[in-house]
Amino acid sequence: MSAVFEQIFQVGFLAAIVRIATPLAFATLGEMFSERAGVLNLGIEGIMLLSAMAGFTAASLSGSLWLGVLVAVLVGALMGALHALFTVALGLSQHVCGIGVTLFSSGLAYFLYRLIFGQQSVPPSIDGFKPVPIPLLSDIPILGPAVFNQFTLVYMAIIAVPLAAFVLYRTPWGLSVRMVGENPRAADSAGVSVMATRFQAVILGGALMGLAGAFLTMAQFNAFTFGVVSGRGWVAIALVVFGRWDPWRSAGAALLFAFVDALQLRMQASGLGHIPYEAFLMLPFIFTIVAMAFMSRNAVAPSALLKPFRREER
């Protein structure tokens, strides 16, 4: 027992949790904004992959990591706009469009990456982001080096959570997002443009998914591989549900998942692998499915999720 305890409270372990949670937090917040406005975005898996590829390519061609991040965010926002065009403007079914966006974006990512970098035995890598220690805070024992000696993108994720909560709950725009997600007809009567608000929320969501992709190829792995996202988008879909469409809870869910994932990696590395590591990777999905069964009575999901809005149909 004490051996397990020692492992958990190692600085490296805590730092690993924070690093694993960062792209999930961005992606989860992105999906949450989209869903709060009433638009399920199953394109997330592909959007993250395409952004990861675009950001990596821009960074490796220009030599500027922050330009790479910018490109990833713009590509994410653009793909969000594409999803919004289909689901909000044209009112097409959100789940099928989302799968279409994922298939299209991942196909495009594979295609362009192969076109630009060719087939190489060792995938090209870049000199990725370096940890930036925050003065004073990084001197706090254990927590300091784990949380406050990280990549700038990690700090951005930490700030993004309260910021997202503030925007969603304390600003007029956030109110509009929640209104068009709960009752678009009422929002329309109150003079809120359902279409514009949904477009904005889905585009913002795509931009956040782009940040998640950027983190993967420019901070976590410093290279692009075809499996670089490997289901993290689907994890984010689960975390949004598990976090009950709330920024704080969703971020908490991301941390919890990161804890389980880091533990799993530790156990694999230490050879304590009596339990197959896949069992841990399955957990967030199983938990979410079970949680959905319990939550369904409370109806916490945005009421208008999956429902297109057409003004004429009164």
């Binding site: 399920l40 689907w234 990777l281 999905f285 499915i289 999956l306």
Partner: peptide
Amino acid sequence: FKVDDVVSSLLLNSV
């Protein structure tokens, strides 16, 4: 339980 089948069937793929 009135659980949305889109998300539950998608997540089962990973399981």
